[in-house]
Design a protein around this nucleic acid. Structure first.
Lengths: 220, 220
DNA sequence: CGAGCCCCGGGAAAATTTCACGACATTGCA
DNA sequence: TGCAATGTCGTGAAATTTTCCCGGGGCTCG
């Protein structure tokens, strides 16, 4: 392990962003980027063929999202090491990712040193969480109020993500390879668990909990 | 102008992402990155002190957002050339950015060549829009997002307002003294007029059009 | 007066939500 | 180790809602 470089698979749907990972990681001795993927399905395929020591992956991607990709990869290889590197500064996402099998969660606002440090920690077998998320997690613990989407299972969370992305039931069934009935069923179950009665309440709850990202457009 | 390299200011709140811009742009002769900023306010300060030939900027940033930053910079220098480079694949945001004075709008999913091409176009005085947004814009022209709630009658708008206030069909029927059946019919008609297929899309459209008071979570 | 909207609601078809049930994996306990 | 107990995922069918199509009454405008 110490003789050869650690091999890394980069997954992000923004090619310029992958370029950024590369640039930062290349400066670090002992690391080598061996492959890149632009979505979860491609990541899964490449993981199976390349067997990298570490996957660095974004969460929000077209098609199957990051959470689902984690599950599939970990199903293939129980020992897979996956580090999530994302813009979502949200404890709920972090909880879901770790629960699905990720070994680390770092936000893109973190300085490059934090990412490098997290990479090293995960390769060493530790769990790595960036400081801002640590803080968020602590807050959500203290807040006590019926916490966010951590009452949802990974599957339910994934369906919720796709619903919020304005996908139809049939489209979601297609991407997850399940029956449309099942998606409708999960949709109903999600609303039940979150205690909302309509899709409208569902979206507004998601907004409050930061599950939806809208840019700040300022005043007109 | 043509003798010296074109100077560029990069603005993005993710340092690793800025690293990506840099890496891509450095391969292109004639371009030189002279400064970086992590938010709109810093971008404005740096623009005044460095007077770059071009600004490449993200939209969603902490503090003052990208749109507001465009306005301030253009207020200081009417000839400023600003290229928006963002993850938001949304025609509405592109329209707002261009209207605020941006000279280009490219999504981060675009390949590096598209970004480089857009940089060159903007430096040459053209307006640059990435193909995916072009397509979105064409769709919205063809009857995609029916402008605002000015296609709705007063009655319909009132029902929409109550729906967004998380009222149930029966409650709305009660307050308006009509049959629940009528409310359901109007609800359906509203979605039809606005060109959305689900309540989730409906809420997000309302958000984009400022019909919903967004919960202000976050920094001062 | 006739044309064009808007508001209101009925009925039937289509889609959805909901409910009840099994298969499967994991956990806890004796 | 054996064996409930629990929780997740998925399906089918019933119950409900949404959608579509329809007509009547009221209103304005040319």
């Amino acid at each position: 392990m110490s003789a050869a470089d650690a091999s890394i698979l980069l997954v992000d749907d923004h090619s310029v962003v992958r370029e950024g990972y590369r640039s930062v990681l290349q400066k670090q001795p002992g690391l080598r980027v061996i492959a890149e993927a632009a979505d979860g399905a491609e990541a899964y395929r490449l993981y199976k063929s390349e067997a990298p020591d570490l996957v660095i992956m974004d969460l929000s991607m077209p098609g199957i999202g990051g959470i689902e990709a984690i599950r599939r990869i970990r199903q293939w290889d129980k020992g897979a090491r996956i580090l999530i590197f994302t813009m979502h500064q949200n404890a709920g996402f972090a909880v879901q990712a770790i629960r699905a099998g990720a070994r680390g969660y770092v936000t893109k606002t973190s300085p490059p040193e934090t990412l490098v440090r997290a990479v090293m920690d995960v390769l060493a077998g530790k769990i790595a969480i960036s400081p801002d998320i640590d803080h968020e997690l602590a807050l959500s613990r203290l807040g006590g109020e019926s916490s966010a989407a951590d009452v949802l299972t990974a599957r339910e969370f994934e369906v919720l993500r796709l619903l919020l992305a304005e996908k139809t039931t049939d489209e979601i069934a297609e991407t997850l390879h399940v029956s449309p009935k099942t998606v409708a069923n999960l949709h109903s179950l999600i609303k039940d668990k979150l205690g909302v009665g309509s899709d409208i309440e569902l979206v507004r709850l998601a907004l409050r909990q930061g599950l939806l990202t809208e840019p700040d457009l300022g005043e007109a």
